[in-house]
């Protein structure tokens, strides 16, 4: 499923966070959007997710203009986004329950995805009983259980230690490739961008920094 961002402008009150921004993500591609804090990376993801109103321009996903949220576009948050009153298993079951899958179907699928991210045996743990890396694994399992066509990842590993982050990067690339989803991954870490992305876009102040994008492309090749 392709993602096309055309002339996107997003405002919060008087502040323009993104101005006339264009971006194209090919089906199955893992595109990394890098850039410093406050440059509008997260806002871009939220606009693609349908979580923020667009002042001008449009986001087109698979030929359809985005007018709100959809289960086809899943979001992975920096602070794990898990519901703290649900166990790991019940967090992963949630998107399946919302999709109307029958209860026995949820359970089996949730267990399978937890197993896939290396968390077999932790099904009954609450998020507070898991480490930061494990919580991100649960979030990844939850996202994959949703079977989205597009995954939007908002600095999901920013709070993790170096080793856990490296493990998670490896896991993410592996499972997203396996699932064949189109992914937009936001980070402020250039190393992470180079390591993960099929392509890297660098955001300056709400606009694509073509010069740095070219340098990164050279580094990658």
């Amino acid at each position: 499923m392709s993602v096309l961002v055309e002339g996107l402008t997003v405002r919060f009150g008087d502040a323009v966070v993104l101005r006339d921004f264009d971006l194209a993500v090919r089906t199955g591609e893992l595109l990394v959007v890098a850039g410093p804090s406050g440059c509008g990376k997260s806002t871009l993801l939220r606009a693609v997710a349908g979580l923020v109103p667009v002042a001008a321009g449009r986001v087109v996903v698979d030929g359809q203009v985005v007018r709100g949220t959809s289960r086809d576009r899943a979001m992975v948050f920096q602070d794990d986004g898990l519901l703290p009153w649900r166990t790991a298993q019940r967090n992963v079951e949630l998107p399946l329950a919302l999709q109307g899958v029958d209860r026995s179907g949820w359970r089996a699928a949730a267990r399978r995805w937890l197993d896939r991210v290396g968390l077999a045996g932790f099904e009954r743990h609450l998020p507070r009983e898991l480490s930061g890396g494990m919580r991100q694994r649960v979030q990844l399992a939850r996202t994959l259980a949703q079977r989205p066509k597009v995954v939007l990842m908002d600095e999901p590993f920013a709070a993790l230690d170096a080793q856990t982050r490296a493990d998670m990067q490896e896991l993410v690339v592996e499972v997203l490739r396996e699932a064949g989803t189109t992914t937009v991954f936001v980070t402020h870490d250039v190393d992470e961008a180079v390591r993960l992305g099929d392509r890297v876009v660098v955001l300056g102040t709400g606009e694509v920094d073509v010069r740095r994008e070219a340098i990164l492309a050279a580094v990658r090749s």
């Binding site: 997710a49 979580l51 949220t69 959809s70 979001m75 948050f77 949630l94 919302l98 949703q146």
Partner: peptide, 13 residues
Amino acid sequence: PTMWEDAVRTMGG
């Protein structure tokens, strides 16, 4: 936290 609501909405809720 708005994140919890955003999570459910992006699941199709």
